[in-house]
Simulated scan of single mutants.
Amino acid sequence: MALYDLPLEDLRMYAPDVACPDDFDAFWADTLAQTRAAAWEARVEPVDNGLALVDTSDVTFAGYAGDPIRAWWHVPAGRRPRAVVVEFIGYSGGRGLAHDVAAWPLAECAHLVVDTRGQGWSHWRSGDTADPHGSGSAAPGMMTQGIEDPETYYYRRVYSDAVRAVDTARELAPGLPLFVTGGSQGGGISIAAAALAEGVAGAMPDVPFLCHFARATTITDARPYREIGEYLAGHRGRVERVYRTLSYFDGVNLARRATMPALFSVALMDVICPPSTVFAAYNAWGGEDRRIEVYPFNDHEGGGAFQRRAQLDWLAERMR
């Protein structure tokens, strides 16, 4: 893929005027109050992961509407962790298997790997969490489920689950600094968690999805954004209603409300999450302590292992 978006010098200054509804904060305050009112004590069951250096527990916690959300809790065996990393997963993926352990526990961090409700059908990482809530007419996939009303939109439940994941991780490891991360969809969810949850010390959104919907849905024909275009192609005349719903979930509007340190990444040949949409969220970030790693010749794989090392170094600076 060749470069197709704005030049890098323009991307670094790109700060679009993304519409934000007047009741944005009230909507999320009410949503999270309802979500927490339905919460119950998390279930934590140790499992045999077949590994010697990492201990794992199967965690089930209450998400939106009290729905059970599954996660893995990995900790360094025989050592007290120095921080907590809560990770959200890319589109179509799930928490995987108990031995699918990332580098975080080896870096002396507890690691909560959170399922995304209704997903986990991917061959690369399976999931175990259902979404029991229905939807009206929708395009195949998750992007348009309930999209004509913010009260019914799928990502209202997902972002609420993310906040409850942070709540749960803080209960499992009280007093430790807590960071959120994820790639693609997981990066977008980590922005939401950073903006909406309490007690987040830092965020590491990696090539984040779910940002600047109005541009993303018109500059790229790649999925998952294409699901929204397909829906609007069939439901003519509903563009304004759909984009109003999406404004409550746009990573740009959420990033403005996040004030903790952040490490982003972007790939300039990424057709799934266009660079301008990533920079829109990065440039809107509410905190001054922010950095973005740029990978000029990469598509949606982004920095891969290079970005993970950048994250490890960035996190180590904040655990001193």
Rank of each mutant, 00 (worst) to 15 (best):
S184E: 01
V113P: 00
A42S: 15
A52D: 10
G182P: 01
A201E: 15
A52G: 07
V294H: 03
A195I: 00
V54T: 06
T181M: 12
E227D: 14
G141D: 06
R117S: 08
R79H: 06
T152L: 15
V207I: 15
D167W: 07
A139M: 09
R226C: 02
R241I: 13
G120P: 08
A267P: 00
H300N: 12
V44I: 13
P21D: 02
Y231H: 12
A39W: 12
D270A: 08
L32N: 08
R290T: 00
W285C: 06
Q119I: 03
L196S: 08
T220E: 05
F209W: 11
P81K: 05
L178Q: 11
A233Q: 11
G127A: 13
A138H: 15
L112H: 05
A83F: 11
A71F: 07
R309P: 00
P296G: 05
A65Y: 10
A37C: 03
Y155M: 07
A26S: 08
T181L: 02
Y159C: 04
P81T: 11
Y155F: 14
A267H: 01
T56E: 06
G186A: 01
E108S: 08
H99L: 05
W121E: 14
R241K: 15
D115R: 06
R236K: 12
T60Y: 03
P296V: 06
V166A: 05
V242D: 13
S135C: 15
W73A: 09
Q185N: 00
G127F: 12
P46N: 10
S247M: 13
P174C: 06
R223M: 09
G96C: 10
G304H: 07
R256C: 02
D115N: 04
Y295A: 05
A165R: 04
R70M: 07
V166R: 04
G78S: 05
G136N: 09
V59M: 10
H74K: 06
W40Y: 14
D5S: 13
E288R: 14
A216V: 03
G78Y: 05
E108F: 01
D221H: 04
A203R: 03
A139P: 03
P132C: 15
Y91T: 06
L178K: 12
M13L: 13
Y91D: 01
D128A: 15
D299F: 11
P296D: 06
E171R: 12
P274C: 11
G237M: 08
P174Q: 09
H133P: 08
L268S: 02
H99C: 10
T31M: 04
V18R: 06
R80G: 08
